Amino acid sequence: MKEEPVRDRLLSEATRLFAERGFEGTSVQEIVVAAGVTKGAMYHYFTSKDDLLHEIYGRVLRMQMARLTRIADGPGTLAERLHAAAADVVETSTANLDDSKIFFRSMHLLAPETQKSVRAERRRYHERFRDMVAQGQLEGTFSDRVPAELVVDYFFGSVHHLGTWFHANGTLTGAQVGKHFADLLLASLGSGHTGQ
């Protein structure tokens, strides 16, 4: 445990404790004891318990944004890239399900300015994803019967709901669920593409 960087240890223990006891039911003292550090060490990396919760979700969102950017700017047809992006967000969400569940369960407890910042970060991801749909509609690759914004809101409503039913030991893996979700998205846009 001591070899793990202090910041990572704090995040790891905070995630575990928030999952077990809830955000409100976990004290800063319990987090620092579990991480084997002092409060001073914690406050060197995080300004508050709010800051820890924000970072738990923020690190997943930053990773997903970097992956989306690579996929969106990468090779392949637009349909292939949208399919890959849709499958990826599901797979990475299921791989980091505790982080997302903790965050969505506790987000309302964050300070208003922190909530605003998080919504803006998530919005940037959704907009980049939406731009791929809108581009396909403009080019005639995808049906434009439903506005791109609504298509994306519907898709991400399903993604954000994963925490209520997905289980790592269930019958489908995160990758399999991701492929099915991506197939459904492309089918709803009138594209016959399905990922291989």
Rank of each mutant, 00 (worst) to 15 (best):
M1E: 02
E3W: 09
E3D: 13
P5C: 04
L10A: 05
A14T: 03
T15Y: 00
R21S: 15
R21D: 15
R21K: 15
R21T: 15
G22M: 07
I31T: 09
V33S: 12
A35E: 03
G36V: 07
G36R: 05
G40Q: 12
A41N: 11
M42Y: 03
F46M: 11
K49Y: 01
D50K: 06
D51H: 14
L52D: 05
L52S: 07
E55L: 14
E55I: 14
Y57Q: 11
Y57S: 14
G58P: 03
G58V: 06
G58H: 06
G58W: 04
L61M: 11
L61I: 11
R67P: 01
R70S: 14
R70Y: 08
D73V: 00
D73Q: 13
G76T: 03
G76K: 03
G76C: 04
T77I: 07
T77M: 02
A79I: 03
R81I: 05
A87Y: 03
D88Q: 09
N96K: 05
N96T: 11
D98P: 04
D99M: 08
D99V: 00
S100N: 10
S100R: 12
I102W: 05
F103T: 11
R105D: 14
R105F: 10
M107C: 08
H108V: 10
H108E: 12
A111C: 00
E113R: 13
S117V: 05
V118P: 06
V118C: 10
A120E: 14
E121T: 09
Y125A: 07
Y125V: 07
E127V: 11
R128K: 15
R128F: 03
M132G: 05
Q135D: 07
G136W: 01
T141Y: 00
F142R: 04
V146M: 05
V146Y: 02
V151R: 05
V151P: 02
V152G: 08
F155Q: 10
G157T: 14
G157P: 02
G157I: 12
G157N: 08
H160S: 12
H160K: 12
W165Y: 14
A168H: 11
G170T: 01
L172V: 07
T173P: 04
G174E: 03
V177S: 06
V177Q: 04
G178K: 11
G178Q: 09
G178F: 07
K179E: 13
A182C: 02
D183E: 12
L184H: 05
S188G: 13
T194A: 14
G195I: 00
